[in-house]
């Protein structure tokens, strides 16, 4: 079977790139870590890839706002390559800082629709590193989360509170919600940041562009889970791997 190529973009301050590459690799893709300047210069053309991922980290230190400077580069220096990529049916994943970049670059909630929503400092006022319980939004079109109903993932961010101005609410397609472990409504810290309607991740209407604050690449082995030492399966895969295998199966099909 063919191994689709995944481009994991790096900028100064990107730091979840190696584990993202590992996740794609065990999911059956061929990942490359590529510095943003090499894509801008045309040395590495985006069109040679079918998966584009913006990993977590602190691009440009998150100076001037989380993901802001990298978002501007995407919007102003990679616009044409990205437009062609999305139009052609490529899939885009932004995790944590990558989600912040997608939002600020105007790639989510509506690709190339300008910045419509924002990710603000957590309601707690603090950086939060913890595992959260997530449930899928019923009937969402996201290709990455097909078959996922509920799962646990790690979050680690200071600015993840999704802010949606009233007039853009209809544009937002929720994919994952922070949930209480009993399935009830999430309260802090179950919702670690105080997001609009407890939304943890959103996609575009095609389901091919996903941005989320939790880190699926940090749960690709059972032993990543905080309670694995109390579980029976100790050496299997982690639930987060599905995001990557789903992406790989999707691009193989199309």
């Amino acid at each position: 079977m063919n191994s689709p190529r995944a481009l994991i973009i790096r900028a100064p301050g990107t730091n979840c790139d190696a584990e993202a590459a590992y996740a794609f690799e065990i999911a059956g893709a061929r990942p490359s870590l590529v510095h943003i300047n090499r894509i801008i210069s045309g040395e590495v053309p985006l069109r040679e890839y079918s998966i584009f991922m913006i990993p977590g980290g602190f691009s440009y230190g998150d100076d001037l706002g989380a993901g802001k400077v990298m978002a501007n580069e995407l919007e102003r220096r990679l616009h044409d390559q990205l437009a062609e990529f999305v139009q052609r049916g490529g899939v885009v994943l932004g995790v944590c800082n990558g989600f912040q970049v997608l939002v600020r670059a105007g790639l989510l909630p509506v690709p190339f629709g300008g910045q419509r929503v924002s990710l603000l400092p957590n309601a707690s006022g603090r950086f939060e590193c913890r595992w959260v319980h997530l449930k899928s939004a019923p009937g969402n079109p996201c290709i990455f989360t097909q078959g996922i109903d509920v799962l646990d993932l790690a979050v680690a961010h200071g600015e993840g509170r999704l802010h949606v101005p009233e007039h853009v609410v209809p544009d937002v397609v929720p994919v994952l919600y922070y949930a209480a472990s009993d399935g009830g409504d999430a309260r802090y810290p179950e919702d670690p940041n105080g997001s609009f309607r407890h939304i943890a991740g959103v996609c575009d209407t095609s389901g091919r562009v996903l941005g989320l604050m939790p880190h699926p690449e940090r749960f690709v082995r059972a032993s990543h889970h905080p309670r694995w030492t109390a579980m029976d399966d100790r050496s299997g895969a982690g639930d987060g791997l599905a995001f990557f295998t789903n992406a790989v199966s999707y691009v193989r099909r199309v």
Partner: peptide
């Protein structure tokens, strides 16, 4: 909680 103890994906 204010330190990322999961980054690099190697947490056991």
């Amino acid at each position: 909680r204010q330190y990322d103890h999961e980054v690099q994906g190697g947490s056991v």
